[in-house]
Design a protein around this nucleic acid. Structure first.
Length: 255
DNA sequence: ATGGTCGGGCTCCGA
């Protein structure tokens, strides 16, 4: 089973690229972030024509996550548990076949001297509790998404320039490690430990052409999923296109 | 220190 994650930066603006990706990469499951539309505006017709079903947790203008799959999707939750007052659509979790998957759009957190950073850290603590509960189930779990965390300096083209950014700050990395060390496996890092494999390149300053990127999109696997991990990678193709998202898909294969 | 680029929805916000 091939499971991929992609922050598309507007599913409507990216529908042609998205359908191209489904046809060429043919993932069994695709986790989307930043779809930037409400449920009723989601391009279901195009997705179905490509042979996929969709579960959507939409939101107007910002955020929004989705799960696409060739087979049936049984949604478990459409918001991250732990704060019923939080309306932001950044988490959807479902069973697809024998795998529990989640599409995660972790808050960016910048600027760090505003409540946005506190929201990020609080959200990460809620995610930690959700992961703890998921690991107790002993299911095959694949948590994919835009984590807005570059786990180490190896994941950043210019660590010194980014050291005070919400994606790289020590508190951010500590919170990420705390959840990882519950027993999750980073599917790309496990098979490709070399530094400087990026998943995101800012639109500004010609960063894609210069490979000035960061690795902030991850697929985190429970032990039961990691035992079956056979391959993983970053597919740079979609980022090279005209009118690309600023992120590119990350994938893994669960045997 | 500034401004560089996108998408959405509207003349600015979030990334």
């Amino acid at each position: 089973m091939k499971i991929a994650t992609w922050n598309v930066n507007s599913v409507k603006a990216r529908i042609t690229h998205l359908v191209d990706y489904l046809k060429t990469a043919a993932p069994d499951v695709l986790l989307l972030q930043e779809i930037k539309c409400v449920d009723k505006e989601f391009p279901h017709l195009e997705i179905e024509a490509a042979g996929y079903r969709a579960a959507v947790a939409g939101q107007k203008t910002y955020n929004g996550v989705s799960i696409l799959a060739k087979q049936k999707i049984d949604v478990v939750v459409s918001r991250l548990p732990g704060d019923t007052a939080d309306e932001q659509a950044r988490y959807i979790e479902a069973d697809v076949g024998t795998v529990r998957v989640a599409s995660i759009y972790l808050p960016n957190g910048n600027p760090v001297d505003t409540p946005k950073y506190g929201y990020k850290l609080a959200w990460m603590e809620r995610l930690h509790e959700r992961v703890r509960a998921l690991l107790k189930t002993e299911l095959r779990v694949v948590l994919g998404g835009d984590y807005n965390v570059a786990p180490t300096d190896d994941d950043v083209y210019d660590p010194e320039g980014w050291k005070n950014d919400a994606l790289c700050k020590p508190e951010t990395r500590a919170a990420f490690r705390k959840t990882l060390y519950l027993g999750l496996t980073d599917a790309v890092h496990a098979l490709h430990p070399e530094p400087h494999h990026y998943t995101y390149w800012d639109y500004m300053q010609n960063r894609w052409a210069r490979d000035h990127g960061l690795r902030i999109d991850h697929l985190l696997l429970s032990p039961q999923a990691a035992d079956r991990l056979t391959a993983s990678g970053i597919d740079r193709g979609p980022r090279a296109k005209d009118k690309a998202s600023d992120h590119t898909p990350v994938w893994c294969e669960i045997g």
